[in-house]
Amino acid sequence: MDAKLVNPFIDALVAVMPQMGFDVPKRTKMSVKNQTCKSLGVSIIVGFTKGLRGNVVYNMSADAAKFVASKMMMGMPVAELDEMAQSALSEMSNMLTANAATNLAAMGYTVDISTPSLTVGQDFQIKISSENYLVVDMDLGGQIMELNIAVQV
């Protein structure tokens, strides 16, 4: 897939996260994978269709997820990933993907997004593509959020 298609997703993170009180996220790593993606503990998948078809997975460790949820809930301590914290993370992925969709539209790709599905577990794998897909690590102030982006051609 075309590497330039990750930019709308990265730009979304950079635009949206600071609005919720995060430092500006930094890209720390980018790679191409063709294997099944191993969940880091919490994975939120959002599908999109129309001008482009694909999936984006926001993948993070339980600790990173708690950090993000806490920040989103105005610094409220999040000791465990309860329903409220999970709901906050779902909301975040929805905002990020909607923002990415707007960025994609500016590139000439109109996309519709699905509702997010948040998956938690100790040991599971996610397959979003049988082809190559792109993986970007974003540093959110010490915690890493991994973006897995697959687009069908």
Binding site: T36, S39, S43, I45, G47, F48, T49, K50, R53, G54, N55, V57, E83, Q86, S87, S90, E91, D112, S114, T115, P116, S117, L118, T119, V120, G121, Q122, D123, F124, Q125, I126, K127, I128, S129, A150, Q152
Partner: peptide, 21 residues
Amino acid sequence: MRISPPGTIVGKNIRIANFKI
């Protein structure tokens, strides 16, 4: 109504949550 490509999860003790649906 359109469908996105599938995302397939394989593993043990998985919980999938959706909110506001």
